[in-house]
Design a binder for these strands. Sequence first.
DNA 1: ATGGCTACGATCCGTAGA
Length: 254
Amino acid sequence: MRIATWNINSLKVRLPQLLDWLPAAQPDVICLQELKLEDAKFPRDEIAAAGYRAAFSGQKTYNGVAILSRSEPVDTFAGIPGFADEQKRVLAATIDGVRMVCLYAPNGQAVGSEKYEYKLRWYAALREWLADEMLGHPDLAVLGDLNVAPEDRDVHDPKAWEGQVLVSEPEREAFRSLLALGFKDSFRLFEQPEKSFSWWDYRMLAFRRNAGLRIDHILLSPSLAARCTACTIDKAPRKLERPSDHTPVIAELR
DNA sequence: ATGGCTACGATCCGTAGA
């Protein structure tokens, strides 16, 4: 089973790239973030024609998440139970017996800002929910734009980024609190190239300079981690004309 | 140098992303 995550930064703009990527990458499941469109505008026909079912939770302009899958997604649920939130950032579905949680974590804007506090509250609620979810679903995968670079090696210039949003210690602690539930960062289960990133700023020729961060992740419960044979970042879509600033992350489960 | 791109919805600039 091949599972993937990709923040596509507007499904409307990136739909042609997605439709090219699906047959090339052949994922069984792909979690998408930043759809930036309401559910009525979700391109259900194009996705179906590509051979994928879809569950989605969209909103106009901002946020929005979807799970595309070869098999029918069941028991879909949007949001974090008990955490009232207008922002569509969370979607869960079970596919072929594996519970998938698609996440678009808040950006946090700046350390100490209101949005930063919201991000930490969101993570606290997420942790509580995932702890519960893991009890009922031993085969649990969390995929998405988590908006945290967990370690210095996930940052192109750790000195420049020290203490900044996406990298700050409270955010990293929030990320580690998920690992403390038993999740593995699938990317780090394997030998990886130095300076592997999943996001590059549109500005400053950041991609060409590989000035990026690794903030898109696939976390696997212990039973799934034991089945994982590879995790890779697919940089190809970032090289296209008019790319998303994020690029897909893919994990293989036997 | 705190900028620099990009998407969006409202204009011809502001908000947000990361």
